[in-house]
Nucleic acid binder design. Structure first.
Ligand SMILES: [Mn+2]
Ligand SMILES: [Mn+2]
Ligand SMILES: [Zn+2]
Ligand SMILES: [Zn+2]
Lengths: 142, 142
DNA sequence: CAACAGTTTAGAATTATTATAATGTAGATT
DNA sequence: AATCTACATTATAATAATTCTAAACTGTTG
């Protein structure tokens, strides 16, 4: 279990003031075994349920985007209608369960390295990510 | 150049009434050499610029979603903040230019077939798509 | 502890999308 | 051809997600 003072240092390192709201959000996001995926709505719920404090919605948005900019969080595009964030900021692939709308990380070994043959002049590749959409085996597929 | 009567037949085939708005939208979307990517906003502009007719925004949304459901259009998730649609409905990969926010199709030959080793019990794979984010070579990368 | 810059906050504003309900129309029925 | 009816279109209102605003607040510096 990471201590709060670690979060304070971590925030200081990237030039974010260790305010109590940011520390609270760090606790909710990083004080756990595994990385996970969430929406802003999820996060607001988690804060209000797990913590007694209430944080303004604007602050949650601001903080999440500050964290994203500093590389503490990654935004994942799967569904144009919802923003998902990921506390796993490394480059990795995903499964998306279309029944439950759950995102699942792929292990390194699940998918071979992707080889891109095309090269766009004047442009460099920033990322290569695979999205595997899965759904229940029996039901009618979309 | 596809004739309107073809669109009428096409619409009838999938059980959509060939109304003048739907035919108009078909013309804008499919009366061209190559497939392309667009947002609802793009489409509304294209209709009002290319055609003299004005179609209600609600109808554009309804029609695009009707076309999507019938397999005439595909929705692409790249940017959680915007919905992109694709008149190329086949399974294919994309480059996304982060400078211009332009989507570019990958040819079959640009990327090898992806082999998924993981298998999620009770779930079948609906699609496997790769998104390659590119950006200007010289500028600071995000 | 005073001062300042950065931060939080509630609420308003904006944007994208969907719902509503009245009106219009394609295609079938007479 | 006139009528009918289910479905489609429309303008507008409603909703939802996100961002903006401006005032109050707080962490940090000296
Ligand atoms: Mn964002
Ligand atoms: Mn959609
Ligand atoms: Zn992930
Ligand atoms: Zn495409």
């Amino acid at each position: 279990m990471t201590k709060n003072c670690n979060f304070i240092e971590k925030l200081r390192e990237v030039g974010l003031r260790p305010t109590k709201q940011r520390i609270k959000i760090c606790e909710v996001l990083y004080n756990r075994e595994k990385t996970f995926h969430f929406t802003i709505n999820d996060l607001v719920k988690m804060i209000s349920e797990k913590m007694n404090e209430k944080i303004s919605l604007a602050t949650v948005y601001n903080t999440v985007h500050a964290f994203e900019k500093k590389g503490y969080l990654k935004e994942i595009s799967i569904d144009s209608h919802k923003s998902y964030f990921d506390t796993n900021t490394s480059a990795h692939h995903h499964f998306f369960d279309e029944d439950t709308h759950e995102l699942i990380d792929c292990d390194e070994s699940d998918i071979d390295k992707i080889n891109i043959r095309k090269n766009i002049t004047g442009k460099k590749i920033n990322s290569v990510e695979v999205l595997v959409r899965v759904a229940s085996d029996n039901q009618t597929q979309k």
